[in-house]
Design a protein around this nucleic acid. Structure first.
Lengths: 234, 234
DNA sequence: CGGCTACTTGACCAGATTCAACTCTTGTGG
DNA sequence: CCACAAGAGTTGAATCTGGTCAAGTAGCCG
């Protein structure tokens, strides 16, 4: 669907950062960009490095993580095609707050900090889009923080899985499948729990026929029941 | 210090949203604004209402909260002078994700959605500032989420208190005092715990001479020891 | 003084983490 | 092609942090 669909012109027009920008401008913007290929498990930016580039995803999927000094890791989010990587560069932060790693092989388009900031000043629509992107992510984080503070593990895992189906769900005969490799550990780092608890919870759901999961795979068979779990007060 | 210092001209020049904007532009921007007074405990915007206005704080302090359908509340942040209220309006969200209430009496300047979006398009610096503000808050939320996921209660409370001293700390003879009324419940809603646990924790610190707290009051006597608590792996 | 709100503290309990042992997949190299 | 190592997942048992319940004290305002 996404893969290979991007011809050489029109790479930018669908990107969330460049929506609504006139195509003449897009050509000029693209002229200042560079291409980047990324293999699975390769890091694009590292936590703590100076924030010097911004990328948009053309194909593939990336994972954004943060690691504490003690070595605990959490997953901030996954990014797919059309999305923006390295927002810190947009907002003028000095260092990347997290690490971005490829989950699949993928292609990206990149700009350095000064180039993209110049683009924002020249084309206000890009700046407006940037505001919208960051605003959305900010609210998303608020929601997750609230979930973490007020819900028990099962509900949080349910929410996490549902969010992922919305973001990267693929219809199959068995149900909605999360379209990239996702381990118990990954889910745990998103929901703020341990892989053991995730495993137990998925096992429970599996015995009730709500999900069908395997090695690095989750398929939601009964999304409605999962939503009701996600929304039932503990 | 802040109170009353703002004369009629130059209200905007210090606001985080309008930094670096030429003063001619500021006058024009201010012309499209309206004033608003707010009494303690009065709500400025309500969670779920259409996002129609943006404000900046001239004086006083505000609290941003989110409430779940079940009635659990969390505190997203406190806002003081120069800060921006209702960022959702900037980023084009349809509804306010949280409720903003006055902690003290205060004065604000407001714009409606179309006016402020027009300002951003006309003066790219404002849009750039908006990107910076949202970027900072986004990273802040990431940090809190990570804390919530990886640290025990005591560390989280310590971090919360330290953040508040940085944001609204006032030097006194006893130590650094948080300069607005702050109950155990408030701290609990920020650190993601219960007022009981906050109370117990503060009692413990008090007996060690680290803090000195009373009814809706927290004074940090030994900030260095508190930092070490905040940064010691559990 | 009485009523209200904020705060404190003890006892108990439970959800979730930790520890530990084991199984199932998958991929690799002899 | 099979063996085996490494990675991923499962599950039971013990433990414990922090929440819940309950009862009481202290400060504030009309």
């Amino acid at each position: 669907m996404w893969h290979g669909a991007a011809s050489d012109c029109g790479l930018l027009e669908k990107a969330e950062l460049f929506r609504g920008v006139p195509s003449g401008a897009l050509a000029e913007i693209q002229a200042s960009s560079f291409r980047r290929h990324l293999c699975a498990d390769e890091a694009l930016v590292r936590q703590g490095d100076p924030a010097e580039t911004l990328h948009i995803v053309l194909s593939g999927r990336l994972r954004v993580t943060q690691t504490t000094p003690e070595g605990h890791q959490i997953i901030i989010r996954y990014l797919g095609p059309e999305e923006t990587v390295g927002c810190t560069t947009l907002s003028g932060g000095a260092y990347y707050p997290g690490t971005v790693t490829a989950v699949d092989d993928g292609k990206l388009l990149g700009w350095n900090a000064t180039a993209i900031r110049q683009v924002m000043v020249t084309y206000p629509q890009v700046a407006m889009n940037a505001v919208a992107i960051l605003g959305t992510r900010y609210v998303e984080m608020q929601t997750r923080l609230r979930e973490r503070a007020t819900q028990n593990v099962e509900r949080r895992i349910a929410h996490t899985v549902l969010r992922l189906t919305r973001q990267a769900g693929r219809r199959t005969t068995r149900g909605i499948e999360i379209a990239f490799p996702l381990s118990r550990q990954d889910l745990a780092e998103m929901a703020g729990t341990t892989l053991h608890t995730v495993s137990r919870t998925l096992s429970g759901w599996e015995s009730r026929g709500i999900v069908d999961s395997g090695r690095r795979l989750v398929v939601v068979c009964k999304p409605d029941i999962l939503s009701s779990i996600a929304n039932t007060p503990s």
